[in-house]
């Protein structure tokens, strides 16, 4: 594996606490890795299995969902629903030998601005260590 591997990471981010913190991080000049692309969702409960699968299918190396802390969801249980769907998707990722560890759920509360940047950094480091999503690699490997 070349050392130059830079992962592509998708962060599905709840419109409430998490997205606000992402915004603030930008405003306050707290940088987070450019590997991470943020997709804002009205509530993490809106994220379906297919959205997570599509991200991997389209070449993401890692995906994480940033939700409000349990009990703090603006729609009461959106984050709990998301957690279950993540679990379900993880099983598919394991069956496909893509690896469930490429998908994670993280929580954030209003005010935790630095926390948002830290999560992005942690995920980037982790996925960088895991290497590229074998889906995009597989075709290449077979062609070689």
């Amino acid at each position: 594996m070349s050392e130059a591997f830079e992962p592509t990471i998708i962060a599905y981010t709840c419109h409430f606490c998490p997205y606000e913190m992402a915004d603030k991080a930008g405003e306050q000049g707290l940088s987070y890795p450019t590997n991470v692309s943020i997709i804002e969702v009205p509530c993490t409960g809106r994220i379906d299995v297919i959205h997570l699968l599509r991200a991997f299918q389209d070449g993401a190396d890692g995906v994480y969902v940033v939700a409000c802390k349990e009990g703090e969801c603006h729609h009461k249980t959106g984050n709990l629903v998301a957690k279950k769907r993540l679990q379900y998707t993880k099983k598919i990722l394991d069956d496909l030998e893509i690896g469930s560890e490429r998908l994670e759920m993280r929580y954030i509360m209003t005010g935790e601005v630095p926390h948002f940047a830290r999560i992005a950094q942690e995920m980037t480091d982790k996925i960088r260590a895991l290497g590229p999503n074998p889906v995009k690699n597989g075709g290449a490997a077979h062609k070689a």
């Binding site: 379906d48 299995v49 297919i50 699968l53 599509r54 991997f56 299918q57 598919i92 069956d95 496909l96 030998e97 893509i98 074998p134 889906v135 995009k136 690699n137 597989g138 075709g139 290449a140 490997a141 077979h142 062609k143």
Partner: peptide, 20 residues
């Protein structure tokens, strides 16, 4: 419809991964 979509995505990835 939803499960079909999920399954199609999963199978596509499986094939992609195997390079088939």
């Amino acid at each position: 419809r939803k499960e079909v979509e999920q399954l199609a995505a999963a199978l596509a990835m499986a094939a992609q991964k195997d390079g088939r």
